[in-house]
Amino acid sequence: MDLPTLGIGDRIRHHRRRANRRQAVLAGLCGISEDYLSQIERGERTPSGEVLIRIAAELGVHVAVLLGDPMVPAGTAAPPTADADVVGALLGTAPPAGPRPAALLRARVEEAWLIWQTSPERFTRIEPLLPDLVGAVGAAVRAPCAPADAAERREALRAAADLYGLLRSYCRRTGRVDLSLLCADRALRAAEDADDPLRIAAARWNLGQVLLARPGQEEAAREVALRAAENLDKECRGRSAAALRGALELIAALAEARTRRVWAARERLHRRVLPLAARTGEHNTLWTVFGPTNVSLHAVSIEMTDGDAAEGLRTADRIDPGRLPSRERRFTFALEVAACYHLRREDPAVLAHLLELEQLAPQDLLRSPLARELLLSLLRRARPLCRRQATDLAERLRMV
């Protein structure tokens, strides 16, 4: 995961300010001109090794700290990535688990999904559960099946489709987009083997989410989502099917916005998605969190993608994110509002939203590239009123 962090010049400026040193003073102590030090801090010049050593010595830090070495323990560790045991289970290197009753597996998968969508510590809470679940579900699916046990195997396949949908989200949020694609594929295969139209649609929604996260794959995401919505419309009726069709249409709308067809995305929201949301109300079919509130959140995303911060903020003002069952979606909404304020260069509002996000979902904030980009911009341009709080937050996120 390409998580932004501070460059050498930014780090020098950060530690100089922490040491309460003016540029002129530090430059004089290091035997360089104030202008040269200013250029280094702005990223226009790269200091020689000798100069860097002198600067580090005067600031009382190790040279590796200024270089951003992740092996340095002084708060410079890289943000966490996917848990090794989870990756091992997905790749088949973990010890095998014995099959368990499908009803028990379904209950455990639902419990894991509840943690994933609602807990502020969802990463550390979910990671100990996933390796055993992956092994147990895999064993249940692979177990020999007599004709009399067909219903049991179908339930195990449904549990597998739901679990791999969760793992798709987990892997994406921990920077393993490669494994996210693998999980989306496994979810689709399990749903197809279970012959479950709703889960097939949800699996294709998951695949669309993965493709949206891969630059250049937006059109593929749109095609996958619209084909799945068309197939679902032929096979299923009812509120749950309508909610899944709406979730798939949202994938298509985001894909259109990201390929500079914002007009098409807006039209899709108004003509296709909003009527479905009015029909379903707030719904969480197979953990897709579709409903009027989520549609409004996507409207904010589309305006932000188009660079229309004013319209994005006007839309955001009409939304009550507390109605959403997913903390992740509430986090994404607040982050996009912060991004809208960033476009308007309203730094105090950006900082306020980042601090709110730290309270809402600190582990998500730690792993969010966009949040770190916003904070990096604050550190570079914020006035002294915001800079202290921004610096403290950067330290808690291990950016400095």
Rank of each mutant, 00 (worst) to 15 (best):
L3H: 12
G9C: 15
D10T: 10
R11T: 14
I12Q: 09
H15N: 06
A19G: 06
V25L: 06
L26A: 11
C30H: 02
S33V: 12
S38K: 09
Q39F: 15
I40Q: 15
R45Q: 15
L52D: 15
R54T: 09
E58S: 02
L59T: 05
A64N: 13
V65Y: 11
L66R: 14
L67F: 11
L67E: 15
P70R: 15
P70T: 10
M71Y: 08
A74P: 00
T76Y: 07
A78I: 03
A84R: 05
A84S: 02
V86D: 04
G98V: 11
P99M: 09
L104G: 11
E110N: 07
E111Y: 11
E121Y: 10
F123C: 00
T124Y: 09
I126K: 01
P128K: 03
D132S: 06
G138A: 02
A139W: 08
V141C: 09
C145Q: 03
A146K: 06
R153E: 05
R154N: 07
L157M: 09
L163C: 07
G165H: 05
L167K: 07
L167Y: 09
R173Y: 13
G175L: 10
R176W: 13
L179F: 03
A187H: 04
L188H: 05
L198H: 09
A203R: 13
L211A: 14
A220Y: 10
E223T: 05
V224H: 12
A225H: 03
L232W: 02
C236P: 00
C236Y: 01
R239W: 09
A243T: 02
R245D: 01
G246M: 12
G246C: 13
L248Y: 09
L250F: 01
I251S: 14
A253F: 05
L254N: 08
E256K: 04
A257N: 03
R258H: 12
R258W: 11
R260Y: 14
R260E: 12
R260N: 11
R268A: 01
R271E: 01
L274S: 01
P275L: 03
L276F: 02
E282L: 13
L286T: 01
V289Q: 06
F290G: 04
T293M: 10
E303G: 02
A309N: 07
E311T: 08
T315Y: 03
A316F: 03
R323G: 11
L324T: 01
T332A: 15
V337L: 05
A338M: 03
A338C: 03
R345F: 00
D347M: 05
A352T: 13
L355W: 10
E358S: 15
E358I: 13
Q359P: 03
A361V: 06
P362L: 08
L366K: 12
S368Q: 07
S368W: 10
L370V: 12
R372N: 12
R372A: 07
L376R: 15
L378R: 14
R380E: 14
P384Y: 13
P384G: 09
L397M: 13
M399E: 10
